[in-house]
Every structure is written in C-alpha cells, then in structure tokens.
C-alpha cells in the first residue's frame, strides 16, 4: 500500500481486532471471594505470584466496574441469588471464570446446601480445576480466557452453546500465548 512513504508511523487493522485487543488487555476482575479459593485468589494477586504481570491486579470491589467474575469457592443455595444479582450488575461484555471444583461441579459437597455447578446460575466461560486451584492454575485459566477473548473464540463458542463458552483449561484446542 505504500505506507512506508508516510511521514508518521501508524498501524492499520480492523476495528474488531482493536476491540478484542482492548478487551483482553483491560480485564478487571470483581472481588468476589466465597470460600477457600478466595484465599488463593488473593494469594494470586499478592506479591509472590503477582497477577499485575498480566494487567489484572485491579480487583474492583464494585461489580459495576468489573468485567470478569471469578467465582472463587462453593456456592450455597442461599448465596446463589446474590451471585446472580452481582452478575447482573456487571457491565457487558462480561466473562465468568469458575474457580475450583466446588464452583464448577459442586466438588466433594454433593449435598442439599451446595449448588452443583455455578453454570446453573450464570454462564461460565472457563472452568479451572483444583481444590483449591493453585495460583498457577488460576493464572492459566485467566490466560486461557485472555486468549479466547483476543481471538474472538469466546463469542463463537457462546453462540454455539447458547450460554457461556464452557472451556476447560485442559482443553488442547485453546492455545495460550506465553506471557512476555
């Protein structure tokens, strides 16, 4: 196109790619800790594991300022309506990451009190295994989500399932870019 003749440097691209790039790079999680996983989520954000490396350290206390909900822990029958309300308060586009087995499937607590999988209440995009998942696993889940958002895969999957993207972090089809 002969761009090299221009005096100033600039990039061209589609607006869609720009939006995806922006969404991926400014993902703000809500501080929504429920149980054991919340401690690991805090540990992920703290000094040793330092979620700030991925531009994710700004945990927003208000759901209205957040676009990622990390469901960290078991969801009880009493908490389920609250969880849904917090989700509804978040602005679109919003992503949900189910952290740990309790949030993903009820885990070892298959009983009257626990919702057997948070996907019954909110659409889940990424499932992270572990009880609780170590900070590394949570980061892997977050990076998987980043990659889904960047490639636009997440919207395709959502259209496919009619709910959340429902990606397991062990899934091989989702490539995770190495952080630079």
């Amino acid at each position: 196109m002969g761009l090299e003749d221009l005096n100033h440097n600039f990039l061209t691209g589609t607006i869609e790619d720009l939006v995806k790039w922006a969404r991926r790079n400014s993902m703000w999680p809500a501080t929504f800790g429920l149980a054991c996983c919340a401690i690991e989520m805090m540990a992920t954000g703290a000094a040793h594991f330092d979620l700030a490396r991925f531009g994710m350290e700004v945990f927003r206390a208000s759901p209205r300022q957040a676009d990622l909900m990390i469901v960290a822990g078991r969801v009880s029958q009493k908490m389920a309506p609250v969880l849904r309300q917090v989700y509804d308060q978040m602005m679109e586009p919003k992503w949900v990451l189910s952290m740990g087995v309790c949030a993903s499937s009820g885990g070892m607590f298959n009983n009257y009190a626990i919702v057997q999988g948070v996907d019954q209440i909110v659409p889940v995009d990424v499932y992270t295994p572990g009880c609780p998942p170590g900070p590394e696993t949570l980061m892997h889940g977050i990076l998987t989500l980043h990659e889904l958002v960047r490639t636009g895969e997440i919207t395709r999957r959502r259209a496919e399932t009619g709910a959340g993207a429902g990606v397991h972090v062990t899934e091989r089809r989702v490539a995770v870019a190495t952080p630079t």
Binding site: L34, R74, S76, M108, Y112
Partner: peptide, 25 residues
C-alpha cells in the same frame, strides 16, 4: 449462612478416614 456447605451432614456420610478431607475445608 451464605456459605453453608452442609459439612456436618456430609461428615455423617464419610468414613472416619475420609473425615479430615471434609473438616479441613
């Protein structure tokens, strides 16, 4: 009650060897 997990009920359903798995949480 927002985190009521029914652990005392689950504890009645696990053997003594499995019990600490439940209580540790």
């Amino acid at each position: 009650g927002y985190l009521h997990t029914g652990m005392e009920k689950t504890g009645e359903d696990l053997t003594y060897l499995q019990g600490p798995t439940n209580t540790t949480r």
